[in-house]
Each structure stands twice: as C-alpha cells, then as structure tokens.
C-alpha cells in the first residue's frame, strides 16, 4: 500500500490540514512505511470474530431528562472571535449543512 502525494492531498482535505508548507514526499514516505507495517494484519484470520470498539461495555443507567444550566458566558469568553454572542466564521452559503 503506497500513500501517494495525491492520496496525501485527499486525506489532508478530509482532515482539513494545510500541508502545502510541508515536505509532502517525506510525509507520504513515512505514512507509507507505517501503513505497510500495518499490512501484517492481512494474515490474521478474523472470521467470526466480533470487533472490539469500546473499552468498557458494562450497561449503565441512562441520564435523567433534567435541565441543568451552565455558565454559558464562560464558553463564549473562550472563543477567539465572537460578535453579538455568536461565533463567527467567513461567509458560508447555508443549506450545505447536513
């Protein structure tokens, strides 16, 4: 499995990381090396094996539907930029929302 420069661009796009200032071929090479190493898993037979996605699978009581307000001003004061108590971003065309 070779991670090409194009694949690096595609992944960086999904991850929203700007890689234009990086040594892309070195990055591609390092990722390739790691991903190659991971191919060792190809030899493992996992038919009829359930995946383990969680560290703990104890069942627990669920949260009660009760409202507990939080000091929301603290959250807004952590924001780098706000306007009229909104978070702000460069203009977007709405509806591209999911």
């Amino acid at each position: 499995m070779k991670i090409t420069g194009d694949l690096v661009d595609k992944i960086a796009g999904l991850a929203h990381l700007d890689v234009t200032k990086k040594n892309k071929s070195l990055l591609a090479e390092q990722l390739t090396q790691i991903v190659e190493h991971m191919r060792v898993l190809d030899q493992v037979d996992v038919s009829n094996v359930e995946p383990m996605f969680h560290g703990c699978i104890e069942t627990k009581p669920l949260r009660k539907d009760e409202v507990a307000p939080f000091e929301h001003e603290l959250i807004m004061s952590s924001a780098t930029v706000t306007q009229d108590n909104y978070f702000t971003v460069p203009s977007i065309i709405d509806g591209e929302n999911e």
């Binding site: 949260r63 539907d65 009760e66 409202v67 307000p69 939080f70 929301h72 959250i75 108590n85 909104y86």
Partner: peptide, 24 residues
C-alpha cells in the same frame, strides 16, 4: 420533545438568546 438535549443537560427550549443553551 425532551426537556434536555440528547447528550447533555442543556435546555431544548426554542427562541432563547443565541448561545445561551450551551455547555461544555
């Protein structure tokens, strides 16, 4: 139509001032 949100205890009430029904 629950009182609190899906994964936190913030209120779901509609029409409140922006960014006041929020928590960590």
């Amino acid at each position: 139509s629950t009182k609190s949100k899906m994964f936190c205890s913030c209120s779901t009430s509609f029409g409140k001032k922006q960014n006041t029904n929020i928590c960590p």
